[in-house]
Design a protein around this nucleic acid. Sequence first.
DNA 1: TATATTAATTAGATTGTACTAACTAAAATT
DNA 2: AATTTTAGTTAGTACAATCTAATTAATATA
Lengths: 141, 141
Amino acid sequence: MEPRKALVDVVEKISSMMGEFEDKALNSDELSDLTVRQLYYLDIVKKLSYPTFTDLSEEIGVTKPTITTAVNKLIKQGYLKKVHSIEDRRVYNLLLTEAGKRVVDIHDKAHNDFALMISNCLNDQELNKVVEIFTKVIDCQ
Amino acid sequence: MEPRKALVDVVEKISSMMGEFEDKALNSDELSDLTVRQLYYLDIVKKLSYPTFTDLSEEIGVTKPTITTAVNKLIKQGYLKKVHSIEDRRVYNLLLTEAGKRVVDIHDKAHNDFALMISNCLNDQELNKVVEIFTKVIDCQ
DNA sequence: TATATTAATTAGATTGTACTAACTAAAATT
DNA sequence: AATTTTAGTTAGTACAATCTAATTAATATA
């Protein structure tokens, strides 16, 4: 096969495999009362670490009322907490509860599972090559 | 770094890079009147080739009324056509219009762009290694 | 031929996610 | 001290995507 075409082909298949791992992780029982969107909100809260409502709304790109609604629901469901800022009493900082941390970890599980699958398919030398080559891709970008 | 951890790390970063390419492809002007979900419906129509409403509903995992609504909207927007089956006059087969083919191709563009980025970052020898190793992963699964 | 099954549709409701506009309370500025 | 700005909320709305139940029309079966 033409090398360029072969690469696109591999990218396509790997991407759809990753998608399947994501979907499988998302079907976990513990995630059953959360939508994909809600999980995304929780991921962003983790990523930003103790964001305010405004931080969240800027990062996600939705209005503040939308954030209020979404966050309140996640608080009611027990995945988030809001704590008053000490410096400015208008402001809240958001954090994951233990349950929140747990579901974010389950979500991350997809990557672990995928990595596990790869390492089961390859020998040590190939694994090292994969890490080495993709580190180059990541750094080059 | 511990090899196992390094692999998970690489998988995580590559996966989020792929996500960014997907998002960028989705922001194309031609896709602006379509939701992600609608694009997914169009992808599945292409994948199944001339599916019936029932085929679609089974593949996507939603009820037939849902498919009727979704498909009718996509027909009205000019991305799908339905044609009567010759064998069974209750049945329709679905197909992409030219506009439908175009948007599905734009969606696929993410994979091409990602592949292009990879090939710009690596030399020929590394590229061959990537294709070789991931072909092994795909076949092993 | 009458009856049951199947493919798609219609009607009506629900849920999730988003918006704008108007509001409250706190902080910053004049 | 009065005014403006900022952070988050409330109220009301809209739309996408889904469902169940009932319906129509064609096909298959008893």
